[in-house]
Computed example of a mutant assay.
Amino acid sequence: MNLNELTELNKKLRIDLINLLHSIQTGHPGGSLSATEILTMLYFNIMDCEKDRFILSKGHAAPMLYQILAEKGYFPEEELKNLRQISSMLQGHPCAKTTPGIDLSTGPLGLGISAGVGMAKGFKMKGMDNRVYVLMGDGELQEGVVWEAAMSASKYKLDNLMVIVDYNGVQLDGTVENIMPMGDLAAKWKAFGFHVLETEGHHIEKLEKTLNKAKEIKDVPTVVLANTVKGKGVSFMEGKNIWHGRPISDVEHKDALKELGVN
């Protein structure tokens, strides 16, 4: 997909997300909006969806992932209206048992990279060239199990593992800096044996270039620190932790759509 088409798709997905979460009065807008460009770039331009594996370790961003899976034809778009409903195939966090296109059920933070290491190691042991992509939140990096997994990835030289951090600086209860400062993240990942790349997570041209560069790294796992904005595209949501999982009112719905270019 060319970059102009991706730009239009990202705009459509943001509008659809606001409409969907307003209609069901539940869900996680902030982290879904910050991850939009990362997810579309992976699914439409970077991954081989036939053989690669994707893990949404920040599972609360499932609404945006579900919209992309619907765009890719994994299930009908009309299923989206059942998001987070009892017995729905689209639960609040990804469920591999019920949802086509989901490679791993996630929710507990830190689970994604841990399982991703196992998947990547398994592909290596079988001599397969499949790749594993793991999208994490920056608040998630406060989990100790993340760094245990990182040590393992480095030990086994898992160059088929790519970790992308949605680096928006905000988590459920406040900013990452206030809740549990992570310091120099690039230095931390380097200390754990990762090749580190940094990029602008909403600039699709730079994002594509960085992710393609990451695929070329050999003998070590790679992490991409993608600088993003929580709630990107809706000014009153941007950078605000209250929009981690807050319902969208009628007035806020109208204002958000206006900002996104809908009359």
Rank of each mutant, 00 (worst) to 15 (best):
H22E: 11
N19Q: 14
G169V: 09
L197E: 10
P181Q: 10
L69W: 12
D52R: 11
K12S: 15
V145Q: 15
N130I: 01
V196F: 08
Y66W: 09
S105K: 02
V145L: 13
K12E: 15
S87F: 14
D159S: 15
M182I: 14
L109G: 02
K72N: 02
H195E: 14
L161V: 12
G239F: 03
D173T: 12
I18W: 08
A70V: 10
K188Y: 07
L104R: 05
D16C: 03
F75N: 07
G139T: 08
A150Y: 08
S87Q: 14
K188G: 04
Y156F: 15
S23D: 13
S34K: 09
F194M: 02
K72I: 05
G101A: 10
L20F: 08
I15M: 09
T175A: 11
N227S: 13
F192K: 06
K213I: 08
L225A: 08
H93Y: 12
E50C: 01
M89T: 09
I46S: 01
L257H: 05
L197H: 09
A35I: 05
L135S: 06
E198C: 06
T36N: 14
P63V: 10
A149L: 08
K58P: 03
V262W: 07
I18S: 04
A226Y: 03
N241T: 09
S235G: 01
G101Q: 04
I38D: 10
S235R: 11
Y167N: 14
F192C: 06
I46N: 01
G118P: 06
G122L: 11
G127P: 10
H253Q: 05
Y66M: 08
D184M: 07
G245Y: 01
Y66T: 07
D129K: 14
G31H: 02
T199L: 03
V229D: 01
T7I: 06
D219W: 02
M128I: 12
E205W: 00
K12M: 11
P63Q: 07
G31M: 07
T228S: 13
T175S: 15
L69Y: 12
